[in-house]
C-alpha cells in the first residue's frame, strides 16, 4: 500500500507530536488514579506526578475518567468541586493548547 498525503491542521499535527513523556501505561494510570485524585481533593498535593500528568494529556479516555473521579471524590468530602476541576484542567493544559 502506498501512503497517501493528508491535509493536517496545526492542531492535528500538535496532537500527533504531543510530548507524552515520561511514559505511563493506561493500566498503571488506572492503578493510581484514585490515589492521585484523593491527593488533590485532600490538598496533600497541588500538582500531578509528571508521568501521571503526561498520560492524562496524551490519553483522552483516561483524562475524561479521571476528571469524573475527581468530581465524585470532591463531592464525597464536600470539597469545592468547581475549584478542583478548574485546577485539574489548568494542570493538564499547561504548556499545550490542545486540550
Amino acid at each position: 500500500m502506498s501512503p497517501r498525503s493528508r491535509r493536517l491542521s496545526s492542531r492535528a499535527a500538535g496532537r500527533l507530536t504531543l510530548d507524552a513523556e515520561p511514559y505511563l501505561s493506561c493500566d498503571d494510570c488506572f492503578e493510581q488514579v484514585d490515589v492521585q485524585v484523593d491527593a488533590l481533593v485532600s490538598g496533600v498535593s497541588e500538582s500531578l506526578p509528571p508521568a501521571f500528568r503526561a498520560h492524562l494529556v496524551g490519553c483522552a479516555a483516561c483524562r475524561a475518567e479521571a476528571r469524573t473521579l475527581l468530581d465524585l471524590a470532591a463531592h464525597e468530602v464536600g470539597a469545592d468541586r468547581d475549584t478542583l476541576l478548574a485546577h485539574f484542567d489548568r494542570e493538564l493544559a499547561a504548556g499545550t493548547d490542545l486540550l
Binding site: M1, P3, R4, S5, R6, R7, L8, S9, S10, R11, A12, A13, G14, L16, T17
Partner: peptide, 29 residues
C-alpha cells in the same frame, strides 16, 4: 491497517494544512 484518513471525511477536512502539518504527514509515511 495503514489506510490514511480521507481528507474529505475527518473533522479536520476543511482545516488548512500547516507547514508542520505537511512535515508530520511526511513523517507519518
Amino acid at each position: 491497517l495503514g489506510e490514511p484518513a480521507s481528507p474529505t471525511t475527518g473533522p479536520e477536512a476543511h482545516a488548512e494544512a500547516s507547514d508542520l502539518g505537511r512535515a508530520v504527514d511526511e513523517a507519518m509515511n
